[in-house]
Structure formats: structure tokens, C-alpha cells
Amino acid sequence: MNGLMNNVKDWILQFFPQNARIVSIYPLKGSTTASLFEITIEISDKQKEHVVLRQYDKPDAVEKSKAISWVENEANSLIVAYSLRCSSPKFIGKDKYGEVSGYPLLLMSKLPGKVDLHPITITAWLENLAITLKDIHQNRLKDFSSKHFRYHHPDNLNIPVWSSHPEVWGVLFQLAKQQEPMYDPIFIHRDFHPVNVLWQGEEVTGVVDWANGCLGHAGIDVGHCRWNLAMIYGVDEADLFLEYYIKHAENRFSYDVYWDNVSLMDVLMDQPSVYPGWTEFGRKEITKEILIDRIDQYAISLYNRIKQ
């Protein structure tokens, strides 16, 4: 059971009955900002519980002050998401200041299932993905500690030098600088994409990584997922996901390309790099060159929607 100090194990066990003991600890993949561990706790001869510990021990990836904020926000998000029955982990405990190990800690229940980036039937997979997001958005929460904000101010955006279509990006930047549309905010995941969704077969078992949960527009989640789908598979898959979401959300959602564009601006990089989660879960064919081409193709698809 290497990887965790004894005082961290003691801290975990305080949330369980007195005679509980840790019987296994396994590292999990998928996080670029923290170490993840699956921990099995034996409550009795007939009862075991599986939990996940997130330990923000990668200072090169995230400053401690930001990790403290993320732990606090994810704890709040998990509590809200669980109350809304969003197929989320259940919050168990937190040590946001790192008093136990020197690193901020978050403890939550473990959901069944695994990340699946190689679906057998892509259309059914995309529809279930859309339904899952629609279910998260079926709320009218008005009171939450965090509200949506843009990661990059539009005045700081530059036409990417790597793009073969600078004129397209110029139009997208003009849209990004427009005043944000008025809307009634709801509780959103804020980082909804395929690596944060768990599956058993063709059924979704849950959604993880709620560190960015906030009040915002549903299109923010839709747009972030569409960008990821366009990078992993292509624009057609991203568009099909949107069709399914609109179908199942019915009159609760009105599509506006503005939010797709904002989501693209949020992830725009001077030097694009392949997200490690895609590679870790089997999409090793995505190179920097493929990524750049797909970003351009997705940008063109948004440009065409603007010009319609």
C-alpha cells in the first residue's frame, strides 16, 4: 500500500466505523493536476467500500492556492450534484489546506465503470453522452458559490500562427468580443467531456471531476464537450452530439454559437498540445499535427454557423 503516508490513511479512516481498515490502494490515471488513488476499505467481513482520494501533489501543474480553491469548489459541487442526482461521486471529506500531508486532499466515493473512448457504436454513445449532460442540466439552481467566468479575456486573444485559416479566427474573435447574451443560469459541470464520463458497456454510470462546477449557461458544457469530441473524433461527431442534446433538452435549451465559440476560446493555445487524458485512455493516434488540423476544422464549422 505504497503512495500514501500513514497519517493520510488515518485521516481517511476517520470517516468510517472504528474497526474499518484499508486493504488496498491503487493509483488511478487521468488527472494532470493531482494524484488519484482508489482505496478499498473493509468495514466488516461482508462489507467493503471503494473511495477515491485526490491529492494535489503536483506543484508544477497547479499552485497550492489554486488547489485549495479547487478542493473547496469540488466539495461544494459534489454536494450539490449528489443532491440533484447527477450520477456524481458522493463527497466524504476534505483537507483543503494540506494540514495532513502538506497537500490539499479531497475524498469521495468511487463510481463503477470506466472511461471509454473506443465505443462500439458511436451514435448510441454520443446520444447517451448527450442525455447524461441533459440530465445534469435539469435544475434551476440559483445559489452557488461559483459563477462562470471566461478563462481568456477576448482582448488578449491573438490569431494563432499555426492556423491555415487566420481569416476564420478573425471572425471568431469578433464574436468573442461581443457582449455576453442574457440568460438564466443553471448549475453546470464546466468540464464535461468524454474522459470525465464513466461507462459500463453502453450505459453511463457516472460523471467525475467536478472541480469546476458553477452557475452558467448550458451551452458552456455543450461547447466544451463538442470541442473535445471534435479533437478526438472529428466535427461530424461534435455536430451529432449537439443534435442529440437539442433533441433531448427540448425547449429547455436554445442553441447559440456564441457559447461554442467561448468554449473554444477557453482552450485556445499559442502552441497546441495533445491532452494527456486522450492518450492515457487509448487515443494515441492523435498527434500535434492532427490536433491543429482538427482545431482549424472545428473553427471553420463555427464560422459557417455564424455566417448562416
Rank of each mutant, 00 (worst) to 15 (best):
L84M: 03
L264W: 09
D293F: 07
M182I: 10
H118Y: 10
N156P: 11
Y258V: 08
T123K: 15
N6M: 09
G234T: 07
I25D: 02
P59Q: 09
H137Q: 05
D270V: 00
I188H: 12
S146W: 14
Q18Y: 01
N73K: 10
V274T: 12
H193S: 00
E243V: 11
D57R: 09
N212T: 10
S83W: 06
N228D: 11
G219S: 11
Y244A: 10
M1Y: 12
R21N: 10
G216H: 08
K96V: 01
I290F: 09
I122P: 08
D293Q: 15
V208P: 15
Q47K: 15
E243H: 13
D270S: 15
I12C: 05
F192I: 00
L117R: 06
K90H: 01
S77P: 06
Y103W: 11
E180P: 04
Y298K: 10
T121G: 08
I220H: 05
V51Q: 11
K134L: 02
G93N: 14
H148N: 02
F149K: 14
E289N: 11
S65M: 14
M269H: 08
V208G: 09
Y303P: 04
P272V: 03
Q178H: 11
W70L: 10
D57H: 13
K58F: 03
L106T: 00
S101Q: 13
K29A: 04
G98F: 14
S254L: 15
A211V: 15
D143V: 14
D45N: 13
F149M: 10
Y255R: 12
T287Y: 04
R190S: 02
R283A: 05
K96T: 01
G113M: 06
H189A: 05
L133P: 08
F37T: 00
C86G: 01
L242D: 04
P89F: 13
V161Q: 09
Q308T: 10
I300N: 08
I22S: 02
I220Y: 14
G201N: 05
N304A: 03
W259E: 12
M182W: 08
V115H: 01
A81F: 14
G3H: 09
R226L: 04
I300H: 08
H217G: 01
W199R: 00
Q174C: 01
E202Y: 07
Y275N: 11
L106Q: 04
C225K: 08
N7T: 02
Q138P: 04
A238P: 10
A61G: 10
E180H: 08
Y183W: 01
D260R: 09
G216E: 09
V222W: 15
M265E: 10
L78H: 08
I306G: 05
P185H: 03
K64T: 03
V235R: 13
Q174D: 15
Y298R: 07
L117M: 11
M265Q: 07
M269G: 02
I136E: 03
S146K: 15
T32D: 03
H217L: 04
V197G: 06
D60V: 13
K134M: 06
I68R: 15
S69G: 13
R150G: 00
Y103S: 10
K284W: 06
H224T: 08
E38D: 04
D266F: 09
N7P: 09
R294V: 05
S263Q: 13
D135N: 12
L175N: 01
D209W: 07
L129M: 11
R190M: 05
Y82I: 00
K9L: 08
S164P: 07
V235F: 15
C86A: 15
I295D: 06
S145R: 14
D95C: 05
H50P: 04
